[in-house]
């Protein structure tokens, strides 16, 4: 438990009062965040009920819920959402398999373990945009090393509507599996050794030990990793935007960007932004709940 100073204790009478200091320290941050995050959202909520176009001088006309009605009836938007769902499923699924697998492999005595782990964590610290850019080099059909390594001649990755989304997801898996690995490793190293010793005495098999001891004890951290990655994958913009520009890879964030900054349908894009926002906040809520749970342990 965190120790707290009692307000009005010995020193509160000298200098500024504790209450004043608390307010001085906290309130500016909250005001800053309200002005630059919440106020813009209120602003865009207003615009979401209008036909405003930022590229024209025409004033905004109030059109009620029409934007929302049009968006929800637009089958292309649903395709964008379906694409996003497919992307989230493939990339987060891949990250869990690779990341958890890597954590199981690394959870033993290995020479230079610290260095190996740090090297593996490098990709996730890098800029999505730049990673996307240099994966284009790797994916190049005629001279990229991926085709060369796999012996695929001239195979199109990024301009092939069937494959492009998976190619982007693969890059995301490369980048973020280490994140899942990091959390799983933390979970694995926290499992008390005596549990495994007891299982060995009972002659429990590998599979039994894995499903009854390892898995349940890693699950809390694995869940945090999954929820966090799901949220990030759902918001993906940079990677897919840089790597391809096809309809089959148009994630919802890219659709939103095009609607707002290329087609200049400002009002409508604000409405779509709100639909996306509500989904993200729902996932955030779940995430924070699990985060707090993990904290209490």
């Amino acid at each position: 438990m965190i120790g707290r100073l009692e307000p009005g204790s010995i020193a509160a009478k000298r200098g500024m009062s504790d209450l004043a200091i608390r307010n001085l320290f906290i309130i500016p941050t909250i005001i800053f965040l309200i002005v630059f995050n919440i106020f813009p959202l209120i602003y865009s909520l207003g615009y979401s009920f209008t036909d405003f176009r930022a590229s024209m001088n025409a004033p905004a006309n109030f059109i009620g819920l029409q934007n929302y009605r049009e968006l929800l009836a637009d089958e292309y938007i649903w395709i964008n959402f379906a694409t996003t769902a497919k992307y989230v499923l493939v990339s987060v699924g891949g990250q869990v398999v690779v990341g958890f697998g890597a954590a199981l492999l690394l959870n033993r005595e290995i020479p230079a373990k610290g260095l190996v782990t740090t090297l593996l964590l490098l990709p996730m610290m890098m800029s999505m945009a730049v990673v996307g850019l240099f994966w284009k080099l790797l994916y190049s059909p005629s001279w990229g090393i991926i085709n060369y390594a796999l012996g695929l001649e001239d195979f199109e990755w990024l301009s092939n509507p069937e494959v492009a989304l998976y190619a982007v997801a693969l890059t995301d898996i490369w980048m973020w599996s280490p994140f899942v690995m990091l959390l799983c490793l933390a979970g694995l190293s926290a499992i008390p050794k005596h549990l495994y010793e007891a299982a060995a005495i009972d002659r429990a098999g590998r599979w039994y030990t894995f499903t009854r001891i390892t898995l349940p004890l890693v699950t809390p951290l694995l869940l945090i990793a999954i929820i966090f990655r799901t949220m990030e994958a759902f918001k993906t913009f940079d990677l897919a935007f840089i790597m391809t520009s096809m309809e089959s890879t148009e994630l919802i964030a890219i659709r939103l960007y095009k609607m707002a900054f290329q087609e200049w349908q400002t009002g409508k894009s604000c409405a779509l932004a709100y639909i996306v926002l509500i989904m993200v906040l729902a996932i955030t809520n779940i995430y924070v709940k699990y985060l707090n749970k993990a904290k209490e342990r």
Binding site: L33, L41, K235, A273, V280, L281, I283, V288
Partner: peptide, 18 residues
């Protein structure tokens, strides 16, 4: 405070741009 971090950049960017 944490939820402001989770906002998708594109969502915030539209009103911020205006």
């Amino acid at each position: 405070i944490l939820s402001t971090r989770m906002l998708p950049p594109v969502v915030v960017a539209i009103p911020m741009f205006l």
